[in-house]
Simulated scan of single mutants.
Amino acid sequence: MEQLALNAWLAAHPDVEQIPGRDLFIVARYMVPLDATLAQGCLVAAGVPAVLADAHLMQADLLLAPALGGVRVLVPQEHLPHAHAVLEGLARGDYALDDDRTYG
Rank of each mutant, 00 (worst) to 15 (best):
E2V: 02
E2G: 15
Q3V: 12
Q3S: 11
L4G: 09
A5E: 15
A5S: 09
L6A: 08
L6I: 05
L6M: 05
N7R: 05
N7V: 09
N7K: 02
N7F: 01
W9S: 05
L10Y: 09
A11T: 12
A11I: 07
A12F: 06
A12H: 11
H13Q: 01
P14Q: 02
D15T: 08
V16F: 11
V16H: 12
E17G: 07
E17Q: 13
E17L: 14
Q18D: 08
Q18N: 14
I19S: 10
P20L: 00
P20K: 07
R22C: 10
F25Q: 02
I26M: 09
I26G: 00
V27E: 07
V27Q: 01
A28K: 10
R29N: 11
Y30S: 11
M31C: 08
M31L: 13
V32Q: 13
V32C: 00
P33E: 09
L34N: 01
L34Y: 06
T37I: 02
T37E: 15
T37R: 14
T37K: 15
L38P: 02
Q40N: 08
Q40E: 02
Q40A: 01
Q40T: 00
G41N: 06
G41T: 00
V44A: 02
A45W: 03
A46E: 00
A46S: 10
A46C: 04
G47H: 13
V48M: 01
V48Y: 04
P49W: 00
L52N: 05
L52P: 03
A55Q: 15
H56Q: 14
M58Q: 04
M58K: 06
M58H: 00
A60C: 02
A60L: 10
D61H: 05
D61K: 06
L62N: 12
A65C: 09
P66D: 01
P66G: 02
A67F: 09
L68H: 01
G69K: 05
V71Q: 08
R72W: 09
V73H: 03
L74P: 12
E78G: 08
E78N: 15
H79Y: 15
H79F: 11
L80K: 04
P81Q: 03
P81K: 11
H82N: 12
H84R: 14
H84M: 14
V86I: 07
G89S: 03
G93F: 00
D94S: 11
D94M: 02
Y95I: 06
Y95V: 10
A96W: 06
A96R: 13
A96V: 03
L97Y: 00
L97N: 07
L97T: 10
D98N: 06
D98E: 07
D99L: 14
D99T: 12
D99G: 11
R101N: 10
T102M: 14
T102Q: 15
T102K: 11
G104R: 14
G104T: 05
